[in-house]
Design a protein around this nucleic acid. Sequence first.
RNA 1: AGGGGUAUCGCCAAGCGGUAAGGCAAAUGGCUCUGACCCAUUCAUCGUAGGUUCGAAUCCUGCUACCCCUGCCA
Length: 522
Amino acid sequence: MNFIEEGVVKARDRGQDIILRYPPEPNGYLHIGHAKAFSITNSMRNQYHGRANLRFDDTNPAKESMHYVENIKRDLNWLGIKYDRVVFASDYYEQLYTCAVHLIKQGLAYVDDSTMDEIKALRGELGVPGKPSPYRDRSVAENLDLFARMRAGEFPDGSRVLRAKIDMASPNMNLRDPVLYRINRQTHYRTGNQWCIYPMYDFAHSLSDYLEHISNSLCSLEFEDHRPLYNWCIANCQGALPNLPKFPPEQYEFSRLNIEQFVMSKRWLKKFVDEGLVDGWDDPRMPTVAGMRRRGYPATAIMDFVQSTGITKNVMTVPLSALEFYVRTELDKVATRVSVVENPLKVKIVNYPADKTETFTVDNNPHDPAAGTHAMTFSNEIYLDGDDFSDNPPPKYKRLTVGGVVQLRGAYKIKCLRKVGDTLECEITDDKAKGVVQYVDARTGVKAEIRSFAPLLKAGTALTEDNINRDSLYRSTAYVEKWLAEQNNPSTKYQFMRKGYYVLDAKDSLVFNKTISLREGF
RNA sequence: AGGGGUAUCGCCAAGCGGUAAGGCAAAUGGCUCUGACCCAUUCAUCGUAGGUUCGAAUCCUGCUACCCCUGCCA
């Protein structure tokens, strides 16, 4: 049992209902890091028969929109993350305002007329205590009046803020009179122009949890320093509103998921999108849930993966191979197999009649007979993939060499007699084959475009056109079975024989997105 | 007067005083009309220095390293 679960058990044993929450801000798409965080909450909800609210933390109208709300819901549903209610921080603006007034009346909050720079200057630095604002000791009456007028729109944006009166000398910067409300005339995607003051995260989040009777508030490590403020807001707003729960919510923090070569910062992902370096939030190179979906990663694979990573406070960076393991395992169960050659190498079968063709039947998925079969054409002219032949084979090479024998998948064994120019001359044989190789009939195979995806750059790398690998979303020509061309089901997963996994791009019926390779360099 | 966290195999991670689980990766071998899958085997004395104890990854002390915090973002 990990510390998160212990917290849930503790709440349960003290008689609380287990109520959790997923708190995305609708300012972008969900990425796999969110999937990990939310899966922890999801599994606690399921395991302890609790409830979970999907709460959009929408307190910064400049960045948020309904478009994001909808896509976050869609991704959550696709992943199978369950929630019982959909709520919005913006539903609580009135109650939050009441709580702020409650703090002012207790002398625990004040209106500050300082500029942003003045506030910053007085806040002090790490290891250096801050100094009180000249406005810190205003009377309750004056604060009440000023705050009401802030709400009424009497003051320009940024001219005043409401601050908590805590401790300007606290070693915890979050406690040096944090801003609770700012004036910001932005049209909110839900409340429109009804408000010109908006609550800050710490104030809104803690009290939203409290209002919703949240038992355990699970979040990531960077909020550890915020916990004292979280608790301060709740403790000082007891009695501010009716029907507040007996037990306050408790915040628990765990470490975030990092994956090698993945940028997991929403700010950067947004930058990629805004600057057109990627197609959009669902670009297959993006570590977003939508991008991975388009890339052909099954939802179950993503969930299995995030659950396989630990729930600890350790800084973690998981290798991409760990994610791929789950994708591969899942796709291996469900993927339809099909033959593809990416770099066609022409083969002539010298002892096969030029005017003859045959049709062979091949399983769509050897692990699943119910997946059916498909037909493959064979004639005296076929293509092999360039990687399946070597003039200079390394030790233990199992594919074709001059003089060697391989099994053509579903068809004959062939022996390579010689290489003439760019063409291999082979004959059908009964000799023992070294390995199995895929092929495509040269006359009926069809060309298709293949896209290869480059992983995103490593976190912390400077953003340039070069290192985002825009051009590595390259296209090459491949020959696939004609059968595949006849399929027009964008939702189907395909496994190209021994070349890796691919998924049909819904945008273009003959563009294939290479997702992962079964083996590096193969 | 800085504070808050974290340190167990290349990467995740169990372990909570009784003699280091498991997964990924890697390697070797077997099987195979996917070099896949599957099967078998191999792979750590626990950041460091001391201390307590019959016995410590687990307790104590001192070091060291790394992460987070100085938005009117969340």
